[in-house]
């Protein structure tokens, strides 16, 4: 007789496979069609890299290049600023003892996640327009910093919560002042959390469409707004190639984050 295993439920594996199929099928289809040799997106006529070449050298290459430059520069700056702000906030929240208004502080920090993105977009647009802040590169950057803070905060705070307070107590006991206890002990142990926070913020900024679309102003495009604009006229093969490149980039980042998270955990636990 087989033993009773409370973990096994018939059919759950099937559902899991269906789930993964649903998640991946559209992405794989687009990736496959991006290698299509044909100008038509309907018929698959042969394998070719012509649409990838088109992304870099075709008619719209300059537009894509400018959009990519905006996207990546904004994402790096927004993620760095958000990570710095979020790290300070996490230390204050997790290591700052109990204080009145802690729930309110948490609500404020997580507000950008709680409020529907479209509402954040409306709020930011109205605010910039009221104070007369010109819409453009800078307004996108500011909006992205705000929006990315909770995404950076959550992994950093989670990591910090898993680190016993006795580490910084030990550092202070050994004559490290508060800054040195953070610099030499807490920060290195938190590093994987800070890094995941940075990567998540980076990806969130890179991916954002709705807020960017509201606050970008005329003439400034990021990759998502450029793609959206192009798709409005129908899905063209070069867009599929560009999408596939972005898809690969996302997979690269998530793999990186996964590997770093794992090595960080192993170092800390054993």
């Amino acid at each position: 007789m087989r033993g009773f295993d409370p973990r096994n439920y018939t059919g759950f594996l099937t559902v899991t496979l269906v789930c993964l199929f649903i998640l991946y099928a559209p992405l794989i289809v687009v990736a496959v069609y991006s290698f299509n040799d044909s100008v038509s997106i309907t018929r698959f006529t042969g394998v070719s890299l012509r649409w990838y070449a088109d992304v870099f050298t075709g008619l719209e290459a300059a537009k894509f290049r400018a959009a990519a430059a905006n996207s990546f520069s904004i994402a790096i700056m927004a993620a760095m600023a958000a990570t710095a702000i979020a790290t300070a906030a996490a230390v204050g929240m997790v290591r700052g003892g109990n204080f009145r208004g802690k729930p309110a502080s948490f609500a404020l920090i997580s507000m950008p996640i709680m409020v529907p993105e479209i509402v954040t977009a409306v709020a930011t647009l109205i605010f910039f327009s009221t104070i007369g802040f010109a819409l453009g590169y800078l307004s996108i950057l500011v909006a992205h910093i705000v929006f990315c803070i909770p995404f950076a905060y959550l992994p950093i705070a989670a990591r910090l919560q898993g680190i016993e307070a006795s580490f910084e107590e030990a550092a202070q006991d050994l004559y490290a002042n508060r800054w040195r206890a953070f610099r030499y002990v807490l920060a290195p142990i938190m590093a994987p959390g800070i890094f995941s926070g940075f990567l998540l913020a980076f990806i969130i900024s890179l991916d954002d469409f709705i807020i960017t679309n509201f606050v970008k102003g005329a003439g400034v495009e990021t990759l998502p707004t450029a793609i959206f604009g192009a798709v409005k006229q129908g899905i063209k093969p070069n867009i599929m190639a560009l999408s596939t490149l972005l898809l690969l980039f996302s997979i690269l980042i998530v793999t990186l984050s996964y590997l770093i998270g794992r090595s960080g955990n192993e170092k800390y636990q054993n």
């Binding site: 300070a88 204080f99 404020l108 950008p112 409020v115 705000v146 803070i149 508060r178």
Partner: peptide, 27 residues
């Protein structure tokens, strides 16, 4: 844990100011 309690305000202030000014007030 409260090792950083004395400078808590300074640690939290940047996030409060940024989110408060650019999101809470706009909402």
């Amino acid at each position: 844990s409260s090792a950083f309690a004395p400078i808590r305000l300074w640690l939290l202030l940047p996030s409060w100011v940024v989110i408060g000014f650019f999101l809470l007030i706009p909402v």
